[in-house]
Structures are given as C-alpha cells and as structure tokens.
Simulated scan of single mutants.
Amino acid sequence: MATEPTGDHWTSEAYQNAAAFVPKLASKVLQWLDVQKDDVILDVGCGDGVLDVEMAKVLARGAGRVHGIDSSAAMISAAQEAARKAGLADRCSFQVLDAARLPRASALQSGAFTKAFSNAALHWILRPPPDPAGSWAAVFDGVRGALAPGGTFVFEMGGLGNIAEIRAALLAAVARRLPGGVAQAREADPWFFPDERWVRETMEERVGGWKVERVEREWRPTEAERAGGVEGWVRLMGKKWFEALPEEEQEACVKEVVEVLEEVCRQPGGGWMLGYVRLRAVARKI
C-alpha cells in the first residue's frame, strides 16, 4: 500500500470496492513464493491481509508464521480482523510500519525470516535514483536484514508501462490546473513502475547482497471492479494526484479524469479494461 505522509486514505471497504481484483490475481507470484508449512514469511505492504490468511492456511500445517507490515493503520486493523475471523491469528501478526523504515526496525532485522513477499505494494514505496529519501535502498536493505542467509524475496509490482492511459489522463488534467504544468504535476505522481533491468541493477549492484534469480514483466489487462468502476479506482488510487490541487478544484479534476478514462477504457461488451503491466521477481540473499 501507499506511504501516506499527509494521512491514511486507505480503508478495506474502499479497497474492496475499487481493487478487490489485486489479491485475486496474485496466483502467479504466490506460485513463485511456494509457501511451505514451516516458512517464516515477512509480507511487505500486506494491505488488508487477504493473502496472509491464505498463506497461514498452509503455515498452520507446520511451525510457520507470517508477519505483515503496512503503513496504513486502517489496513493493518482490517488484516488483524481477517486473521481473527479465519481462526489463524496465532499464525499471523501485523504491524503498522513504513517499509522504508525497515532497516531501523531492529526487531525485524534479526535474519529470522526464511522468505519475504510483496504484492502490488512496492510501486507505491520505491523511487528511482536519484532519490533523496533513499526509499529503494532502504527497502531492499531492510528486507535483506530480515531474511536468513539464502532467504528469498518474491515480489510483484507495477512494471514499466503499467496503467499508462490512467497516468496520462491524470498528468494532463492535474498539470492543466497547476502553474508549474507537467513538471509540477509529475511531483504528485505516487507511483514508480520500473523494468527488469532496473531490478537487477538496483538489487545486485546499487544495493548489493542480492542475486536476482528470476524476473519478468507481463502485460495483464485487468477489468475494473463492477462495484466501483473507473471512478472508484481513480478516487482511491489517484488520491495523491488530486491533493496537489486546491481543494475547490479537486472534484472537477476527478470528474474530468473519469470521463476521459471511461471512454478510453470502455469494453464493447460493457465494463472497463485497465492496462495493467506486472513486474515480478525472485531474489536471493547472498
């Protein structure tokens, strides 16, 4: 989930309304993770815990457990409740923690985890160099410190080209309302969608201590949720873009973006298709 310095905009209800497909489409990255009953797993950006509960069903057969972190207190609360309702609270633990602060979370830097996992979160957290916040280095350093020697980090995130039509609509609509135009609007973009080369070079060379064993980028057109549609997605996921504008201009901008995207993404048979591109990787701590 997002790192939200201006407030926690996430709720499980809004997420389910706009993007319930995200955990449902995680089957491939979960196959790569290959959860075993005795695994000790760190989930970076766990959201509302839907996938953690699924992992815990396997972990309950052995001595395994999963610990999820997320910067959203609302989502962590939802994850705790989901684990409790599933009767798996003894296998799941959750913590409000920004992933970029992992290196300073001493309790998680003991090398106790056999695997680390992240789905649809890192594109909210990482930033390319030069990055004054150092988020990409902090995250990969922090995950490495949490893993036992030889442990693996399996993740999926938005890849280069992800939701290009949505970003274009947002950039154009927001830039038109700012004195600094495109340059100023670009600063409001909360996402980073890298490619395979960036992953290898960053983890193996810039950060070090990693061997990227597998990486791929997949074009995966994804149908918008029927409940929230394009508008639900834009209002939730695009929140940071609109916050760059004066409050009195935000609603008009939302409506403009939604109107454009409902036309661009419309399917002949009904509904809307979003241009998702997924980047997934397996990296081993060395």
Rank of each mutant, 00 (worst) to 15 (best):
I163D: 06
D39E: 08
I69S: 00
L122F: 12
P246S: 08
E205H: 14
E187D: 14
M273L: 14
L30Y: 03
P246K: 06
V22K: 02
F153E: 00
V258C: 04
A26Y: 03
R84V: 10
K211S: 13
V58F: 11
G269S: 14
Q16N: 09
L42Y: 00
G111M: 07
E259V: 12
V139K: 01
E213M: 11
E205M: 10
E165G: 07
A63C: 13
A252T: 05
E156S: 00
G269H: 15
V260H: 09
W233M: 10
R167H: 15
A173Y: 05
V44Y: 01
A99H: 00
A283V: 06
E54D: 15
L30K: 05
E225I: 13
V277Q: 08
A281T: 02
Q267S: 11
R217E: 03
A83N: 06
Q267Y: 04
A86N: 13
A74D: 10
Q16D: 10
Q109Y: 04
N119K: 03
P268M: 13
E243L: 07
V29N: 01
V234D: 04
P268N: 13
A73D: 06
A107F: 06
D98T: 04
L245I: 12
W191V: 04
P194M: 11
A2W: 02
E231D: 15
W191R: 07
E204L: 06
M273W: 10
A100T: 05
P246C: 12
V35S: 04
E218K: 15
L108A: 11
I41G: 01
V254C: 15
A252Q: 14
F140K: 03
E249F: 04
D43Q: 01
R220H: 07
M237C: 12
E81H: 09
E13D: 12
A116L: 01
V143T: 05
A148W: 05
S72I: 03
G275F: 03
E263T: 11
W198T: 06
V96N: 00
D131W: 04
E263F: 11
P130F: 09
V215G: 10
L33H: 02
T222V: 04
L42I: 02
I125K: 00
A281V: 03
Q36N: 14
